[in-house]
Simulated scan of single mutants.
Amino acid sequence: MRSRFSAFSVGDTAYLLRTWHPDTRPPHLTLDPRTHWTHLEILETTGGSPFHTEGTVRFRAHYTQHGTQAHLEEHSHFTRHAGTWVYVGPTTP
């Protein structure tokens, strides 16, 4: 999750797509250059150890856009695919 937040911060769409599960990955990704990601809070995690194949991360990502501060909160699902952790998508309640 931290590496994906960093990729959002610097606009590295190639990394974001590469770390997205192929079943849920969009064909392309365009980031708004006016969005400046400022910091990440990890609120909760499950799984994710070297012994797990799935995990979740609940996070709050802070950003500024048009001079206004805001945040995005999500509970994300990750899984191992081809030996590496990839983002699947938001968990469903």
Score class of each variant (00 low, 15 high):
Gly67Cys: 02
Phe51Ala: 14
Glu74Gln: 09
Tyr15Arg: 02
His71Gly: 14
Tyr87Pro: 09
Leu72Cys: 15
Val10Trp: 05
Glu73Leu: 13
Val88Gln: 05
Phe78Met: 06
Ala14Cys: 07
Gly48Cys: 15
Pro22Val: 02
Gly83His: 06
Pro22Asn: 04
Arg34Asp: 08
His21Phe: 08
Pro50Trp: 06
Trp37Val: 05
Leu17Lys: 00
His77Ala: 09
Arg34Gly: 02
Arg18Thr: 12
Thr64Gln: 04
Arg4Trp: 12
His62Ile: 05
Ile42Met: 12
Pro27Gln: 12
Arg34Val: 02
His36Asp: 12
Arg34Asn: 08
Thr30Pro: 06
Thr84Ile: 15
Ala7Tyr: 03
Ala61Pro: 01
Thr46Val: 12
Ala14Glu: 02
Ala14Asn: 03
Gly67Ser: 00
Ala82Arg: 11
Arg25Asp: 07
Pro50Glu: 08
His77Asp: 03
Thr53Cys: 15
Tyr63Thr: 14
Arg58Tyr: 05
Gly11Ile: 04
Gln65Tyr: 05
Asp12Phe: 06
Phe51Asp: 13
Gly83Asn: 10
Phe5Asn: 00
Thr46Lys: 11
Arg60Thr: 01
Gln69Cys: 10
Trp85Gly: 10
Thr91Leu: 07
Leu72Asp: 14
His36Ile: 13
Thr38Lys: 10
His28Gly: 15
Arg58Thr: 01
Pro90Asn: 13
Phe8Leu: 04
Leu29Thr: 01
His62Pro: 08
Arg58His: 04
Ala82Leu: 11
Pro50Val: 04
Arg18Trp: 14
His39Trp: 07
Thr24Gly: 13
Gly47Ala: 01
Arg25His: 08
Arg80Cys: 12
Leu43Ala: 06
His36Glu: 09
Thr92Gln: 04
Gly11Met: 04
Leu17Met: 04
His36Val: 08
Gly67Val: 02
Thr79Gly: 12
Ile42Glu: 14
Thr64His: 02
Ser3Ile: 06
Arg80Gly: 13
Ala82Pro: 10
Thr46Cys: 11
Leu16Cys: 06
His66Gly: 06
Arg18Asn: 14
Leu16Phe: 06
Pro33Ile: 08
Pro27Leu: 12
Glu74Cys: 03
Phe5Leu: 11
Ala82Thr: 14
Phe78Lys: 04
Tyr15His: 04
Thr79Phe: 15
Thr53Val: 11
His75Ile: 09
Asp12Val: 02
His75Tyr: 06
Pro26Lys: 05
Thr53Lys: 12
Tyr15Pro: 01
Arg58Glu: 09
Thr68Ser: 10
Asp12Cys: 05
Thr53Ser: 10
Ser3Pro: 00
Gly67Met: 00
Leu40Arg: 07
Leu17Ser: 00
Trp20Thr: 07
Thr38Arg: 12
Val10Ala: 08
Arg4Asn: 02
His28Asn: 15
Thr45His: 07
Phe59Asp: 09
Gly48Met: 10
Gly67Ile: 03
Leu72Met: 12
Thr35Glu: 05
Glu73Thr: 10
Leu31Thr: 03
Asp32Lys: 12
Gly55Asp: 07
Tyr63Ser: 12
Arg80Asn: 14
Arg34Cys: 01
Glu74Ile: 11
Pro22Lys: 08
Arg58Ser: 01
His81Asp: 09
Tyr87Val: 11
Trp85His: 02
Leu40Val: 13
Phe59Gly: 04
Thr45Ile: 08
Val86Lys: 10
Ala70Thr: 15
Met1Gln: 13
Pro93Arg: 00
Pro90Glu: 15
Thr46Ser: 14
Thr19Leu: 09
Val88Asp: 14
Arg60Tyr: 02
Ile42Gln: 12
Leu31Cys: 00
